[in-house]
């Protein structure tokens, strides 16, 4: 049993008048891959974005309830979301490298957080991150070329490498493979499994096979409710709620 990394209780999210997340409580463990599944519009991405306060950037979004990271309330008035996001990294649905060189893509986070004292240390961080992102071998000879010139799968791995360059403790992934082909998807999934050794990974996915392959824990969302949360094997073989069963057998969604 791993430690509890993130503990959310009674979380409600409103977009204007829309009640997007209804009283969700969930505990996310360290060194675990947790998958959020559910039909489109069920709120899984919204909930994911609560975990590093990306919803702050949307004017009409309002979050209530408490989300604790290592026992500290991340919605406390004293918390600066900038510091939080350095600890809780995020990878987005569409690969979104900065239109800069591959090197600068990775080095940007460490630079603004002051993680490297000199060029040599920065070089080291860039290489380490790219290696952990399983893309070093492909790009090591062209670090000065624009990151936007890579293929879709490479771009997504670059974005993952960028996210881990700031040494986060939790990595949030919002459908990271939805724009990738099966080969690139397999590479990213393999990577996610390796990242579990050091990080707590939360992944939103539309593919139930992917959730079954990569995650240890699965949460099923439906219309803003957290319907069921438990061991991945348990959810997929022996769901307790009828809605979960309908979804994973393909009858709703």
């Amino acid at each position: 049993m791993n430690d509890i990394k993130i503990s959310a209780s009674g979380v409600d999210v409103f977009y204007g008048d829309t009640h997007a997340i209804k009283n969700v409580s969930v505990e996310i463990e360290g060194n675990t891959v947790t998958a959020f599944i559910g039909p489109s519009g069920c709120g899984k991405s919204t909930f994911l974005r609560c975990l590093n306060r990306m919803n702050d950037t949307i004017d009409i979004a309002r979050v209530t309830g408490s989300i604790l990271l290592d026992g500290e309330d991340i919605y406390d008035a004293k918390v600066d979301p900038v510091q939080l996001r350095a600890k809780v990294g995020m990878v987005f649905q569409k690969p979104n490298p900065f239109p800069k060189s591959i090197y600068d893509n990775i080095a940007y986070g460490p630079r603004i957080h002051g993680l490297a004292r000199n060029k040599a240390e920065l070089d080291e961080i860039v290489e380490k991150s790219l290696r952990r992102g399983a893309i070093w071998e492909e790009v090591k000879d062209r670090l000065d070329q624009p990151g936007t010139g890579l293929s879709g799968g490479q771009q997504q791995r670059l974005c993952i490498a960028r996210a881990i360059a700031t040494e986060p403790e939790v990595l949030l992934m919002d459908e990271p493979c939805s724009a990738l082909d099966p080969i690139a998807t397999a590479q990213v999934e393999e990577l996610i499994d390796e990242l579990r050794q050091q990080y707590s990974v939360v992944i939103v996915t539309h593919s139930m096979q992917q959730a079954a392959r990569v995650s240890q824990k699965t949460a099923f969302f439906h219309l803003g409710d957290l319907v069921e949360y438990g061991e991945t094997g348990h959810i997929f073989t022996n769901p307790e709620d009828s809605r979960t069963e309908s979804y994973i057998t393909g009858r709703i969604g």
């Binding site: 900038v82 990294g89 990878v91 987005f92 569409k94 979104n96 940007y108 986070g109 603004i112 957080h113």
Partner: peptide, 13 residues
Amino acid sequence: PPSIREAALGVGA
């Protein structure tokens, strides 16, 4: 594109 803003905010800018 907003994805660039999200990317930067996502790494803690």
